[in-house]
Design a protein around this nucleic acid. Structure first.
Lengths: 331, 331
DNA sequence: CTGTTAGCGCTTTCAC
DNA sequence: GTGAAAGCGCTAACAG
């Protein structure tokens, strides 16, 4: 049996109310009383019960980080894990704990969206549908969308300038004198996929570089798929002199194939990635890539969500975070 | 105002108890009644409140994963993040959610160990002290220790055969004909550090290879520190022909320096790492390393913890998971 | 199979 | 400053 507020009340002779106040609003209790209470609490090892508190306050100080099953597992995902870490940090700072939930975790078999655990708010990442978002809001659970965009009233979306990042990457390649530029495009959510793909197309067009059908590739974003795809590219009559990979995992696959073909990077083949994942600076040569400030993204989304939870009204808004080209050894 | 069990009771004409049972032990309610209740619940969007349930059952279905501040952030840590993922998976399977907590999160300024949120059990990873463990148990919170060993009654420790893994790595190097083998030893917890270090020393001794003082190095386990250290090693009058790195991050640093010095791996310098982190197969050449089944470790710890939570008695036990040498391109 | 009653540990009025 | 009483939403006996 753990000790309760009642035990402390009995020992000190004060009422439950006073004990409660000593912990949750100390300024309402005289210092003398407070000290007596704290001492007694310590002696019997009393600690307020978060569950009981949550029940009456109807607030758990928990938020959920929901990622679609596709992207699972979050923790091992080089893109989402730093974002999650950012959320965790901001949560800790503001007194919230963070739950990871997959898309599947929040849907009843009936299709009803429902959180098994009570949450004060939710960050929904990447691929989802409007129904899920609306469903949370219908249940009065504030939502912030991360890395996706929905055109809904009073909905805050925090995302990334995928388009602009792509433009800077491709223009960097063009600046370096390349015009035979291939794209290996990963199957991400339609939103991300389209932004990055379109950035590529538009940039070539802007620089009057004709688009070659055979330079446009699509893959699952895994090292092995990227390797197979790069191999095909290199076997073309006119192989590209540069590859734009829509994320770093794909870029790594491309690098591996180049090295195994004894090509010199970047002289024989230049490669630029996207995301600036943690391994990108570790590999040799280190990868030129488009940095997304992933932890910052997470922190931003979390702090906005917490503001909304704590009552600050938020109009519909789309926050698009800038990217930055990090020039390293592959271009 | 969200709907409660009472609303459903009113609508259907059944008592709260019956509604409760329809959700938590459906077999105790006739099918007819159940269907009426489910239909009504759906209509008013009723969903059981986990907090209220936790309060009366004194069980939250939450477990905590606590890692020392040193190792923070867990999510980005190549060793602990797959373990955490394993815990998450097993938790999901058994109906538990998992919280991440750092060492600091669970200690009051008074030094009192206390979980802000009620937890049914705790997995404590790596470096900790006995007092923390005892404190949890004193509060009747079951504990499983992961990647560390404590000699305490009825305490379950799940760990890794760091010693045996090291032996296999070093013997592999010896088999390949190396005798000038350096060790770059990362500053991990004393437990892990010692196991791996001792395995190295003992293996050389066993094979009658004299220990050279200058081949023994210690570093913080970061790429840059490992690079600096490897550089020193290579500048020795008699540089080593092989390096045993006590984790993969260190091994990567060693590889980078070798490549920058135009050394051929593994011909000029062989390298073996430890952990088999996710990036180890991605780099070129892929790293020979000692695999730890990290997700399995996490699953094992979680499933044992859940068994204990659910009442299965557990004697004191130390489970030491085997490792496996993965021979890839660096040896 | 279903209902009644009595709390779980805490915070919140509203008094004093 | 402090206390008394009334719940938060749910489940656990115990009846019937």
């Amino acid at each position: 049996m753990s000790t309760t507020i009642f035990d402390v009340a009995r020992i000190t002779g004060f009422s439950k109310t006073t004990i409660s106040r000593a912990f949750s609003s100390p300024e309402q209790v005289s210092e003398k009383t407070r000290n007596i209470i704290y001492a007694a609490a310590k002696k019997v090892n009393y600690t307020p019960n978060a569950i009981a508190r949550a029940m009456v306050k109807k607030k758990t100080d928990n938020i959920a980080f929901v990622v679609s099953d596709q992207q699972y597992p979050v923790v091992l995902n080089p893109f989402y894990s730093p974002i999650f870490e950012g959320v965790l940090q901001m949560g800790r700072e503001k007194g919230y704990s963070v739950f990871i939930a997959s898309d599947g975790d929040i849907k009843l078999s009936t299709g009803q969206v429902y959180m098994k655990k009570q949450m004060d708010g939710v960050i929904v990442c990447g691929q989802t549908d409007l129904a899920t978002i609306e469903s949370f809001r219908f249940q009065n659970i504030p939502v912030v969308v991360l890395n996706n965009i929905f055109d809904v009233d009073e909905l805050l979306c925090v995302t990334v300038d995928h388009y602009g990042g792509t433009v800077s990457a491709v223009e960097h390649l063009i600046d370096k004198g390349h015009s035979d530029i291939a794209i290996i495009s990963g199957h991400f959510s339609p939103y991300v996929y389209n932004q990055r793909y379109q950035g590529f197309i538009d940039t070539l067009k802007k620089h009057n570089i004709p688009l070659k059908e055979e330079y446009i590739k699509e893959v699952e974003p895994t090292v092995s798929d990227a390797m197979a795809c790069t191999q095909e590219l290199l076997q073309l009559k006119n192989p590209p002199s540069a590859i734009f990979a829509t994320n770093d995992v794909i870029a790594i696959g491309a690098m591996k194939v180049a090295m195994r073909n004894k090509l010199l990077i970047p002289d024989d083949l230049a490669i630029v990635g996207f995301d600036d994942s943690n391994f990108s600076a570790m590999i040799e040569p280190p990868l030129t890539t488009v940095r997304i400030a992933k932890e910052e993204l997470g922190k931003l989304a979390a702090s906005k969500l917490i503001e909304i939870i704590e009552g600050k009204p938020h109009p519909k808004e789309i926050i698009e975070c800038a990217t930055q080209l990090i020039e390293r050894g592959t271009t």
